[in-house]
Write a protein that binds this DNA or RNA. Structure first.
Lengths: 148, 148
DNA sequence: TTAAACCTTAGACATAACTCTAAGGCAAGT
DNA sequence: ACTTGCCTTAGAGTTATGTCTAAGGTTTAA
């Protein structure tokens, strides 16, 4: 009917330590204790915890997640604030997606170079250019131990 | 012809502190010093630094970036190793993209709920369910101060 | 030649997010 | 009753990534 902290940890893929840490940080005010003082997680608690993970996985800071949870604890009256917070976070996540897509394209470009048949030649060319640039500026050559 | 650390910081969007930190971590072995002992960044150095930022922005740890840079310093002989490292990282980035896309869908779903005309009603329903679940398990109600 | 605005290093401090230890209580099986 | 395996807390320790301070050298321009 309810889950222990260990079961929850296994279910959501966090460590028991992390769950207790989140509780300390005020992220789990909805989890109450049984007679023994043990945390008793309900299904509803698990859903909220999954939301917390969703926000965490998209880079939201614990303080901001706490703000969201505080709104949830405040009940239906806070719907507008929740929407505002989530909209802002959505924008951040979309920006993050674009950043990653751009960087992935860059990685793919480099992988293309390294996978081409003449990769060694291209890389040697780059190296020669870098060395020439150092020389042109009367600088030491950091590629001394570089196997041509 | 060359750039000072301050100019580079402005160009790539890192702080001067961070650049020095990266150097300490062995990420910038290709940057050499001028007569005064100042770091002199060439255009080639900037390109390598941009690659470092690309890897950092996609979540690669500094230690792993250092490994990559070590390969670069080793010259064309390390092309195969660079490819392997970059391929692995590419996989990680793609997985990351999928994670984010999933979580974004979840956020959009919640935003849909909060944006619907009957949002307050739906949320009240959820709350009622959560409270009932606590009661069914003989647990205290953490939503006491919740404005219905 | 001196002031302003750079640069250097070593190392201390900060922050976030865990991660673990110590000491002890609770519950179930033998 | 005792062992095992949970659970609890407070608080110390860790890791990653910066961020800053102190003390001092360099460059440039008035």
């Amino acid at each position: 009917m309810t889950y222990t902290i260990k079961e929850v940890a296994a279910k959501v893929g966090l460590s028991v330590y992390t769950l207790r840490f989140y509780d300390k940080q005020g992220l789990l005010p909805f989890v109450v204790r049984d007679q023994a003082g043990y945390r008793a997680f309900t299904e509803g608690d698990l859903n909220l915890l999954r939301t917390i993970c969703c926000l965490k996985n998209t880079g939201m800071k614990i303080k901001a997640i706490r703000q969201y949870i505080d709104y949830v604890m405040a009940g239906p009256a806070s719907v507008a604030q929740r929407r505002t917070l989530l909209r802002q976070h959505r924008q951040a996540v979309v920006a993050q997606q674009q950043q990653i897509a751009q960087n992935l394209a860059e990685i793919d470009y480099k992988l293309g170079l390294y996978s081409a048949p003449n990769a060694a030649g291209v890389v040697a060319q780059e190296l020669a250019f870098a060395v020439a640039e150092k020389q042109a500026n009367h600088l030491a050559n950091p590629y001394q131990n570089t196997q041509a």
